[in-house]
Amino acid sequence: MGINEATTYEPKILAFCCNWCTYTGADLAGLNRMKYPANVRVVRVPCSGRVNPQFILRAFARGADGVMVCGCHPGDCHYTTGNYFTRRRFMLMKKVLEFNGIEPQRFHARWISGSEAAKFRDAVTEVAQVVKALGPAATKVTTQASSKAPASADIESSVQKEGAL
C-alpha cells in the first residue's frame, strides 16, 4: 500500500469455502461469468466444520481486512453434521471478536449452496463493500519490521526430511 492509501485501498478478504457447496457455487459463478470484486481469496476446505477459529484469528493477526466462512446450508452438509458445529462455533466467534475490539463487520459467515452462484457473488460483493468502508484493519501486527512467518528455516528443515521420504 502506497501513500495514497485512502484512494487506492483494496481490502484483502480471505474466504474459507467448503468443497461441496460454496466452492462449487463459486465455480458456478465463474461458469456463468458473473462479475464480482477481486478482493476475495478462497481457501478450499473439505467442510466448513474444518475451519478452526484459530485460522480466523491468524488471518486477522496477519492483517486480513475481512474473513468469511462459507459452507452448505444446515441440513445439506455433505458430511451430515459438520456445519451445525460451524454454526455454533462462529456464532460465538462473532461475539468474541466484537468483545475483543475486533470490528465484527470484518467477519462474515454464509451458507451458500453449490447452485447459489448469485448468492456467492452477492455475498462477496457485499463483504468487499462493507470492509472497504471500514478501511484497513487495525489488528495487524505492527510491533516489528517483518510480519513474515518464520517460514524459510521451516521449509528448509522439512525439505531435508523429505529427502528421506
Partner: peptide
Amino acid sequence: CGACTVACRTGAIDLLGYRNRQILEEVD
C-alpha cells in the same frame, strides 16, 4: 470432513491433505 480437528484443542488429530499447518501457511 475434518470436524474432529477443530474439536481437538491440542491439534493431535489432524486432517491429511488439509493439515492445520497447511491451512495456516495458506493464510500466511
